[in-house]
């Protein structure tokens, strides 16, 4: 009886998934396959009617992209900028989490601080990029103005033409936009920990630092790992800020791989084939990291239940055999 019911309704599972599947196939799967295909052709320019598959040298585009100096530079920049923003961002987020969740020193106005720290995250990245570009103007931008008034510098600095400072500023903007987000996620993780664990630590005489490093951090390991992987995937796709801030300049110092791909395909020369090859290489890297994320997020309880069920079936079979 029960079995028949599930069979008769199961078709709705398929029916209700149709819109998602269709939209996914048309707007994600097909474009991905198409991009892969373009990576193996010579598609260039705006009004190209014929495209040829590079049958004699299939991976020509890939080889050429890998040999391009700008691509290597862009790949290096992407990692550099991500690391420069992620480490201080996580360090600060952890510090704030430790402070905000410490039951021994209740901080007032927590709501206000959380709302303020999260605010930059919600503002359009394009706006933020232009805003910082304006703030760092030479000779009279707000940053020069403030630093001069405070006596840190005597002469205004032209921040935006120096490679190192431009990179640092992009990393800083990313840090500024994301530390609040990281903090909120980490705090939510800490709140989820059973308070009895903290009480036990306190009774054993652990001080604040010990509690944080030996109790809190091990308990939020999952969330830390989750933040790491999502931030990495986001960081590898960093586009908005470097693109609007200085359009990848000066001298390609803030060109990330996404900016590189965008400029190759949609600005100036329209070299779609190479840009496709470049995005496919990034795609593979991101798929690898997605797999890691998938592994972190897998439902452990369900997995366990499945294993147990399988084992039970096996045992039952063995028993049946034994009897037979």
């Amino acid at each position: 009886m029960g079995k028949r019911k599930t069979i008769s309704y199961s078709k709705f599972g398929y029916i209700f998934s149709i819109p998602f599947v269709v939209a996914f196939c048309v707007f994600t799967l097909y474009p991905v396959l198409y991009t892969i295909l373009i990576g193996f052709t010579d598609l260039k320019g705006v009004n190209t009617k014929e495209i040829h598959i590079l049958s004699d040298n299939l991976f020509k585009n890939y080889k050429e992209v890998l040999a391009t100096k700008t691509f290597k530079l862009a790949f290096g920049n992407t990692w550099k900028i991500w690391i420069m923003n992620f480490i201080p961002q996580m360090a600060l987020a952890l510090l704030l989490t430790a402070w905000f969740t410490d039951t021994r020193s209740k901080i007032k106005c927590q709501g206000f601080f959380k709302v303020s720290f999260y605010m930059p995250n919600i503002i359009t990245a394009a706006t933020v990029g232009i805003m910082f570009n304006t703030f760092f103007q030479y000779p009279v931008g707000p940053v020069n103005d403030i630093l001069k008034t405070l006596g840190f510098i005597n002469e205004p600095v032209n921040w935006l033409i120096k490679k190192a400072t431009a990179q640092n500023i992009v990393a800083f903007i990313q840090f500024w936009q994301w530390f609040g987000y990281s903090m909120v996620t980490l705090i939510s993780g800490v709140i989820g920990i059973d308070p009895a664990i903290f009480e036990a630590a306190e009774m054993d005489g652990a001080n604040r630092v010990q509690t944080f490093f030996y109790v809190t951090i091990p308990c939020i390991r999952q969330i830390l790992l989750f933040s790491l992987v999502t931030s990495l995937i986001g960081g590898l796709n960093m586009f908005d800020i470097p693109q609007v801030f200085l359009e990848g300049g000066p001298d390609n110092a803030t060109t990330t791989t996404s900016v590189f791909i965008y400029q190759l395909a949609f600005k100036g020369k329209y070299i779609y084939c190479k840009a496709s090859a470049a995005s496919m290489m990034m795609f593979i890297i991101i798929v690898i990291f997605s797999c890691i994320l998938f592994y972190i997020l897998r439902d452990k309880d369900e997995q366990k239940a499945k294993k147990l069920r399988k084992q039970a079936i096996k045992e039952a079979k063995l028993k049946a055999k034994g009897v037979a």
Binding site: F24, F27, T28, Y30, P31, V32, L33, Y34, T35, I36, L37, I38, L43, V229, T230, I233, N237, F239, S258, I261, A265, F266, Y272, A275, S276, S279, M280, M282, F283, I286, V287, F289, S290, C291, L293, F294
Partner: peptide, 17 residues
């Protein structure tokens, strides 16, 4: 599996389509 894959990576195929 596809949750984290950003639209940017299929952009060229999407644009051509």
């Amino acid at each position: 599996g596809v949750m984290m894959i950003p639209g940017q990576l299929s952009s060229i195929g999407f644009y051509q389509m």
